[in-house]
Design a binder for these strands. Structure first.
Lengths: 154, 154
DNA sequence: CTTTCTGCAAACGATTTGCAGCAGC
DNA sequence: GCTGCTGCAAATCGTTTGCAGAAAG
C-alpha cells in the first residue's frame, strides 16, 4: 500500500464524489475496503477482504459493500462458490471478464480482445432489441480448472 | 404433460442410464423433477419446481437436484437472485445463454447465432490456452430489464 | 451538535443434513 | 430383503439487521 504513483489518491477522489452524491460519507472503513479491492487483480470474497483489511467488523464490510454497490463503485460477482466475490466497478478499472475455477472457487480476471468485444456487442444488441430486453451490461465467464488446481490434481 | 410426441419418454431413456451409471435410481421424484424442467423454456427456482411438481418434499428436491447435477443431467444457474435456478443440461436440450432481469430476478433463455458462438469459441480457446486454464465451458449472460418490468415500471 | 457509521450479537433464510420409515430392483 | 430414497424437522452458514456508543462534517 505504498502508492508511490498516487493511484490510490486518484481513486479516492473518483470515489468520494460518488458516495457524496449518494448521501454517503467516505469513512475510513469504506476507504479501506476500496483500497483492498484496488490492491488485487481478482475479485475477493469477504474473508479475503477481512484478512487484508486489518481490523474491520465483518458486518461493516458486508454493509459497506452493499452501499458501495448501490453507489455504483463496486460490483458483486456470484460464482456459484459459497461466497460472493467483489471487485471495483469496471468504470474505475477496465472492462474484463472472469475465469472461474470449479475446483477451488477462485475467480481471476481476463481482458477480452477488441475483436471479441465488438462482435459480442453487435450480436448482443440484436438479441436484446428483438426480445424487448433493455440491456445494461453483459457477463462472460470461462468455467474450468485453474492452472494451480490442474497441477495439483491433474 | 400430455406428451403426444413421446418427447418425455425419449428424455427419460436418455437420463435413466446416466443415473444408473452414477449409481443412482431413477425414482418417481427424480422423474418428476426432470419432467418439470423439461416442460419450461427458462431455468426454474426451487419454489417454481415445487409449485409445478405436485407433492414433493422441498428437501428431496434440493437433494435430487444436487444428484442430478453431479450426474451431469441438470445445470445450476446462480443469477444473483435469492434463489438458484435449475435447467436441464444443455446436452439434453441445446446450447443457449441467459437474459437476467435485475428487477424481478427472472431468467430467460436465448440461443446465440452461429456467428457469435464461433467467434466466442476461437477467442476463448486462445485465452484459456495462454493462461493455463483448462476450459470446460462458458457462460454468457445479458443483464438488464425484461420486457415485462420495463412495461410496468418504465 | 446532528446524522451517519461501526461493532457486537442476535436474527434471517436458502440450503443441507440426521434419522426413521418406505420404495426400487 | 438389502440398499438407497423420501419426508420431516433440526442444524448450518453466508448474510442481514437492531441497537448503543463513536466518528464525520
Amino acid at each position: 500500500m505504498a502508492d508511490p504513483e498516487g493511484t490510490l489518491t486518484e481513486l479516492h477522489s473518483t470515489v468520494a464524489p460518488r458516495l457524496r452524491g449518494a448521501g454517503l460519507r467516505y469513512t475510513r472503513s469504506r476507504r479501506r475496503v476500496i483500497e483492498v479491492l484496488a490492491g488485487t487483480d481478482r475479485p475477493l470474497t469477504i474473508p479475503d477482504i477481512l484478512a487484508r483489511a486489518g481490523t474491520l467488523a465483518q458486518s461493516s464490510v458486508y454493509r459497506n459493500l452493499n452501499e458501495l454497490i448501490d453507489a455504483g463503485v463496486v460490483h458483486r460477482i456470484v460464482a456459484g462458490d459459497e461466497f460472493s466475490h467483489f471487485e471495483l466497478a469496471e468504470e474505475l478499472t477496465h472492462h474484463h471478464h472472469h475465469l472461474v475455477c470449479t475446483r477451488c472457487g477462485r475467480v481471476e480476471d481476463f481482458v477480452p480482445t477488441d475483436e471479441l468485444e465488438s462482435s459480442l456487442h453487435s450480436v448482443l444488441r440484436d438479441v436484446s432489441a428483438s426480445s424487448g430486453f433493455a440491456l445494461e451490461h453483459h457477463r462472460l465467464d470461462l468455467i474450468g480448472t485453474c492452472a494451480e488446481c490442474t497441477r495439483l490434481t491433474g
